[in-house]
Each structure stands twice: as structure tokens, then as C-alpha cells.
């Protein structure tokens, strides 16, 4: 496997969803509705990589926390106010919803996994993607890691098969070494 392109995004809670959507409109003619922060951020991180994407691409998304705004809304309304959850808030609380919106917006068909971002997250994402690429379940793999709860760092790489070898890397720096990384910092 080898890395085709890479991007990263740093975003604080001071940046509104509306600002994220404004930036996304520079990449996409239409945007999904009623999606949560994790999905907006993941889309914005993946957007610079779209020119290299083929439709046979798997999405492998990792985060260390669930989407904070969704969980806050749900827990307070259901457990404290004793209300029924709003349907879209509940559905978005399923963490792989972000992966669904990525696949839909990027128009890719392939495996779609959501995992937790533990200390070996890059190695794990590469292993899962390697399994699917070797099985010819997809030609490419889009790997995205979202770290942090308030100041959030997202990093993405697009990889494809090369010599049937698993990439031995355990950090974004290693994976993106020698590439021009698209970077966006939002404060």
C-alpha cells in the first residue's frame, strides 16, 4: 500500500457548524442536512482528497470521542427533561453515521468502518484497509482520524495497493512524509 494524498484540519469549538458548511460549499455543490459535528469535520478533512478518489473506495473512520453536541443534546433531553429524542439526533448518535455521510457525499461504494482512536489507531486502520484491499473489496481506502473533544485534530490519508504490502506506519507524520499535506486551521 502507498499513500496518494493527505490532509489535516485543526478546529476549535469556537468555530461554528455554519462556518464549516460555508467552507464545505467550496468543495461540494450540495450538502447533507441535519448531520452532526463529527460528520461536518470529517467531510471538510476529506474534501481536499476527492480529486484522487475512485468509487471503489472503503472508508475507515476513527474518533476518540463521540460527537459532543449530539450526545449533550440527547442525554439532557432524554435523561433530564424526560423527552423523546429527536429522530435525527438519535440516529446521528450512532457513530458510524458520520461514515455514512462521508460515503454518500463522496459517492464511494465500499466497506465502511468506524473504530475508536486508540494509541495504535493508524496501524489498526491500515490493517483493516489492507484486509479489504487484498480481498479486492475496494481499490482505495480513505483513512480518517479525529482526535480531541474540544480542540479537535483531524488527519486523513488516501491509500491504495502497492506490491500487496501492508504499510508499516503508526503516525500521520510517517504516512504523509514526502507528501504535500493540505492543511486547514480554524480557530
Amino acid at each position: 500500500m502507498h499513500v496518494i494524498s493527505a490532509s489535516q484540519l485543526s478546529v476549535s469549538t469556537r468555530t461554528s457548524d455554519k462556518q464549516l458548511k460555508t467552507l464545505l460549499r467550496e468543495h461540494f455543490s450540495s450538502l447533507p442536512r441535519r448531520i452532526d459535528r463529527l460528520a461536518w469535520q470529517s467531510l471538510l478533512t476529506a474534501a481536499p482528497l476527492t480529486q484522487h478518489l475512485v468509487s471503489s473506495c472503503g472508508i475507515y473512520l476513527a474518533a476518540d470521542y463521540p460527537s459532543g453536541d449530539t450526545m449533550t443534546g440527547l442525554l439532557n433531553s432524554v435523561c433530564i427533561q424526560k423527552l423523546q429524542p429527536r429522530p435525527f439526533e438519535f440516529v446521528n448518535s450512532v457513530s458510524n453515521a458520520a461514515g455514512f455521510y462521508l460515503a454518500k457525499q463522496l459517492d464511494v461504494q465500499g466497506p465502511n468502518l468506524f473504530i475508536s482512536a486508540g494509541p495504535q489507531v493508524w496501524q489498526q486502520l491500515l490493517q483493516l484497509a489492507y484486509c479489504d484491499v487484498q480481498a479486492k473489496n475496494c481499490q482505495q481506502a480513505l483513512l480518517i482520524v479525529c482526535r480531541g473533544n474540544e480542540q479537535v485534530q483531524l488527519q486523513a490519508v488516501l491509500v491504495q495497493n502497492q506490491h500487496n504490502q501492508l504499510l508499516a506506519a503508526d503516525s500521520f507524520a510517517q504516512l504523509s512524509s514526502g507528501l504535500t499535506v493540505t492543511q486547514l486551521v480554524l480557530d
Binding site: T13, A63, D64, P66, G68, L75, N76, I80, N149, E150
Partner: peptide, 17 residues
């Protein structure tokens, strides 16, 4: 925790792993 504290904020989240 939400019931105990009568509220939840994003800072109360635990890592998924």
C-alpha cells in the same frame, strides 16, 4: 452521570476505547 449531575456536557464524554 447525567442523572447524578442533572446535566451533561461534551467535556463529560469518555473515550470510545
Amino acid at each position: 452521570n447525567t442523572r447524578t449531575k442533572a446535566s451533561f456536557s461534551a467535556a463529560d464524554s469518555t473515550p470510545l476505547n
